[in-house]
Design a protein around this nucleic acid. Structure first.
Lengths: 224, 224
DNA sequence: CGACGACTTGACGTGTTTCAAACGAGGTGG
DNA sequence: CCACCTCGTTTGAAACACGTCAAGTCGTCG
């Protein structure tokens, strides 16, 4: 389902930003409509025209690609504050789905581009944004290339802690299957490896979605 | 060794582009000095200030990261015409080395940025460039996540064929070790898998650096 | 309370890594 | 011109980490 279709039955709403707010964040709020997506609902599909830009307000989003035989690779997780859907070409190269019930700010790409053409500050922010995506992709590459399951989980947990930290605990919005598809592992290996890390006193698992980092040094060592 | 150091003993030379050439390619030639690097010579190191932008004239370059225990991940290969060294922050996040003897055009980043600030066409080209890097990184992600050795090699060969094709043969500028570090495999697995693909009549290996794509359909099927 | 989905655990199979040796092409010196 | 060395590549055998298939547990919701 495309963003346009979804828009027909979502609840648009506007915030009240300061006038003449010449930042990307401010502009997005000024021009965007907020939409809600249910768990596992598609925000846009691979190959669809990339007419909109998105910013996560609450919840979480994954961008992923499906292979012909059902294997799935998750390219990135997007948490509150993150922008996604930014593309070079005219089409989305990944699909985007809500991981949990989410509120997302939606802005027309043409509007942002028009803004960037006139305001170099906005253009600079857009540059920073895509450069951040590239950095994330590079980090993700490092994670997938010849690292074992423990090293992948350690890197993942440290990344989530950095982006999503509340004290020493990480609140995971995604399922084990999502983690597996992000890390290039199976759900069983993810589960077993978490159990190993807990046995090694590197982490604690009060619930399956909450992970306490008990020994960051040990995790960092795995992340070498 | 940093680009600056290398510059002291390289042979700067200028081409003669048309005057008022308002394209990035033209500007790079106008403002850049060409430098030569020997096989395995470092062009810049991880963590060094990113003061320059580079364009491969001839030869080939790899950008890579080293892990503490010696494992290496290659982030990308850069062939003639490709630009590399473009960074979001002030430091290079990967190191760059020449794979073979190479000639590289070197341009001051500040000069390019000044140009882009005045000329929106240049700015747009820079945007396209970094977006291409992001696309490549995404393709690379798909390659590394839960694909077996045959699928990785098939994807790699098709990518190289697309970027570097001469008829149906691919002339590889890089060693088996470089391929392994790009694909997240060991050198032995790369070698064995190529032998398997040859036995399956998907490719031919006249020499170790030259690969003839004999059955693209079979390779594409692996790339599903 | 019962049913469903998500997660964990177990036993076994397999593809890739590891360690080791052999091979081949290119270059140098006799 | 051939012997010899070197470096990259290929091949072999064994070990191991992860995948697969299957059963069991836990938490949630109706």
């Amino acid at each position: 389902m495309s963003a346009l279709n979804v828009a027909t039955r979502s609840i648009p709403s506007r915030r009240s930003p300061a006038q003449h707010d010449h930042t990307l964040g401010g502009s997005l709020q000024l021009m965007g409509a907020s939409m809600t997506f249910g768990r596992n609902e598609e925000i846009y599909g691979e190959g669809e025209p990339a007419e909109y830009l998105y910013k996560v307000v609450s919840g979480a989003v994954r961008t992923s690609k499906l292979l012909s035989d059902g294997r799935r690779q998750i390219g990135a997780f997007h948490l509150p504050g993150n922008v996604f859907g930014l593309e070079a070409g005219s089409e989305h190269r990944f699909s985007a789905e809500a991981i949990a019930d989410s509120v997302v700010l939606v802005v027309k790409r043409s509007a942002i581009e028009a803004l960037a053409a006139r305001d170099s500050e906005i253009a600079r922010e857009l540059w920073t944004l895509i450069a951040q995506h590239l950095e994330r992709a590079h980090d993700h590459l490092m994670l997938l290339g010849r690292k074992n399951a423990q090293e992948r989980l350690a890197a993942f947990l440290l990344e989530m802690a950095e982006r999503n930290y509340v004290g020493n605990a990480v609140e995971l919005p995604m399922s084990r299957q999502d983690m597996a598809d992000y890390l290039g592992l199976t759900i069983e290996t993810v589960s077993r490896t978490l159990t190993q890390l807990e046995a090694a006193h590197a982490i604690e698992l009060p619930t399956s979605r909450r992970i306490v980092l008990r020994n960051r040094a040990a995790l960092n060592a795995l992340n070498a």
